[in-house]
Design a protein around this nucleic acid. Structure first.
Lengths: 106, 106
DNA sequence: CTCTACTACTTAGCGCTACTATGTACTTGT
DNA sequence: ACAAGTACATAGTAGCGCTAAGTAGTAGAG
């Protein structure tokens, strides 16, 4: 599982951010709610730091009613491009995997 | 792409071996034929060494008409179990990815 | 008969990403 | 005062695919 998430998790987070801006704690909660129970908070935060450094997301700090201020991330144009590239790559792999599952290649 | 193959490539190779025994050079050729052009020979051989060490495949050395002897790998029962586990994991991820692609979670 | 190309396998070192573990900081309820 | 929930940060580790370079066998071109 862990190995399979490599590269995919980043795409998942970009896809989440494509529907609406979100902050780390929230993203982690969404992942957990979808069954990705084992994803640690640290993993998500580190990923967010990375994609921020990559310039695919914009960040604004928003005060929270409960707890420290939130860092709300949103996809920028470069991020949308990267997301499309992700979907292309994933589509390519998924297509071939499905074919393999239903009877193999040759 | 590279990152997305992590964990997946092993499953792909197990799936290939599930249809019929094969040797490294042959597996590399099949991957290339399916569009995985960038996968280096070394990657496949290293993977085969790993899954052999894990005990999921059996190996026999078979003389070749042209070139050095082939190491023909075949899935053993433990390998079939691992393959099923791979399909379960992949199914889990693929399901959620598809859902994300068609409109998102929430 | 040497040279190239194809077949076939091996392995040391690298980079990237997710995980582990731990820490900080703010708010609310007991 | 203390626990629990909210929210973020980060140093160190492990695993896997890639790079690069090598060995070895066969066949055909020149």
């Amino acid at each position: 599982m862990t190995e399979m998430l490599k590269g995919t998790l980043e795409g998942i987070v970009l896809a989440i951010l494509a529907t609406q801006p979100a902050y780390g704690y929230e993203i982690t909660a969404q992942l957990r709610a979808q069954g990705f129970d084992d994803i640690a908070e640290g993993t998500v935060y580190a990923l967010l730091v990375r994609i921020e450094r990559n310039g695919t997301v914009d960040v604004v700090k928003v005060p929270s009613e409960k707890g420290p201020p939130r860092k709300v991330y949103s996809l920028n144009p470069q991020g949308r491009e990267q997301l499309e590239e992700f979907w292309r790559t994933w589509g390519f792999v998924a297509e071939r995997l499905e074919k393999l599952r239903r009877g193999g290649w040759q």
